[in-house]
């Protein structure tokens, strides 16, 4: 996986995370997950997925959305989608 593109994706994802989870002030790193962000419930997860689809012009698969364990998985999926 290309570290430069992954860092660029993380930077863009961070913008979305800061916007939707506006009460979260901790670090946004690939190991971030819902357990660490009180606002990150199932509804917020759906909204996060839609915001990321729009920001990156990609389409997640339903199976991907259900299997993401942390932000690193999301970033990997975005990178894969951009390469398709």
């Amino acid at each position: 996986m290309n570290e430069i593109s992954r860092d660029a994706i993380l930077a863009d994802v961070t913008e979305v995370i800061r916007d939707i989870f506006d009460e979260y002030e901790g670090p946004v790193t690939p190991d971030l997950n819902a357990a660490k962000v009180p606002q990150w419930d199932s509804l917020a997860h759906v909204q996060l997925m839609v915001l990321l689809e729009k920001k990156f012009g990609i389409r997640f698969k339903m199976s991907e959305i259900q299997s993401f364990k942390n932000l690193g998985d999301v970033i990997a999926s975005i990178e894969n989608a951009q390469e398709r």
Binding site: V46, Q47, M49, V50, E53, K54, K61, M62, E64, I65
Partner: peptide, 11 residues
Amino acid sequence: TYISKAAGVVE
């Protein structure tokens, strides 16, 4: 205007 089938979202 927008549908995400994966997320089950309609806008």
